[in-house]
Design a protein around this nucleic acid. Structure first.
Lengths: 211, 211
DNA sequence: ACGATATTAAAACGAGTGTTTAAAACAAAT
DNA sequence: ATTTGTTTTAAACACTCGTTTTAATATCGT
């Protein structure tokens, strides 16, 4: 009942609306109405619409990246102790699995994954610069790990294949609705673990393909 | 000099701006200014901003789809005559190669590919419904061809892997700029044919992976 | 040359945008 | 109970948006 959940309510509403309609197509009036707060609350608590977007992204991306980085470092440490190179599949899983797991934890977090998927799709958008600031260190580490796992690949090849895999993943992240091209007998709402393995089958084969 | 290139100029300017800034972030005043025509010209010639978007998409998508469909039908006919199943790589190439070839034919057509890539990334956007109207028949045919090329895959698996591959491709289509995550010694502007084969190496391996 | 039609031009329309202001309501501390 | 600082509210701000209107201009068939 205590009302200082205003910020939270704004964040929740903004997350949902940014994800479904996009940043530019969502007005502050829409957000504040959905959050049942006053219009000026956004500028009071966050400063601007753009700063609100950053807050929306950071709130979930920070813990998500910590989890991804933690799993990756743990894997690298294990592989160092056993003096074995980590497998491409294991490395990718540390990145993919925490991501897709968020997608079906209730509706809120799913909205966030969709939002990030859309962000990745707007190269020159506002959200992209925000996103980059918080992704750089993790991506660099992912690069190193994949370079270890796939010693046969040139840096050029490695880059392009990561590029392809990221494209696939971001596509899954934002497109999880039935549309006319989906055969009727195909389940669109797979359990996370199944989807993760399905994706890894595809991505790992692509990464390890002969060049 | 004769000015009835007004429609063309609007289409060109809109294509470029929609591709770089997105539909909602682009105003008609921006477009008409870039096209050096009067503001009212858009509504006069196209009816509305949304109809303009459709015109922009249709102008290039129609011939592109004709080319893709033509190459695919030709391949299927050849394979029927030789009583051999078409290879996954050949099938995918009929779809991918005409697409990526447009990307570097001067700047205009590249803008279009970027726009389509962004369209694919906004599931519930206006552009998506427009896009779907013109893609359905081709996609159905692609499904059939890939089903032929990969008889070992269940329909479920086939759907998901096409989903992944489409994600990869749309990512390439819209992201062709250097950003902080691209290693300095990696060429981002590969020749089309190289990029096509690079992508096919990845996608075909993914499609054909053991499940 | 004239009249019908198609196109351009400038201006205004009403609605919606993000943001700011100034007063009101609230909270906690002295 | 009064003061302090924080939060909420309603109203207004200055713009920009897509679209429409009305008049001027160009184009073309006869």
């Amino acid at each position: 009942m205590s009302p200082p959940d205003t910020k939270q309510r704004i964040l929740d509403a903004a997350e949902h609306l940014f994800a479904t309609d996009g940043y530019h197509a969502t007005s502050l009036r829409c957000i504040t109405h959905a959050a049942m707060v006053n219009l000026a609350a956004v500028n009071y608590h966050f400063g601007s619409k753009e700063a609100l977007l950053e807050a929306v992204i950071v709130r979930r991306l920070t813990p998500l990246n910590e989890m991804r980085l933690g799993q990756l470092e743990a894997l690298l440490q294990r592989s160092e102790q056993s003096r074995q190179v980590p497998s491409c599949r294991e490395v990718l899983r540390t990145f993919v699995e925490p991501t897709l797991r968020q997608r079906q934890n209730g509706s809120e977090k799913g909205d966030f994954v969709t939002l990030i998927g859309r962000t990745l799709a707007e190269p020159r958008g506002i959200a992209m610069t925000i996103f980059m600031r918080h992704m750089d260190p993790l991506m660099i580490r992912l690069y190193q790990a994949l370079s270890l796992a796939l010693p046969g690949l040139s840096q050029q090849l490695l880059f392009w294949r990561i590029h392809f895999a990221v494209g696939s993943l971001s596509h899954i992240m934002r497109c999880h609705e039935r549309h006319s091209l989906v055969p009727e007998d195909v389940r669109i709402d797979l359990p996370v673990d199944e989807l993760v393995e399905l994706f890894l089958d595809f991505a790992v084969a692509g990464m390890e393909a002969a060049g």
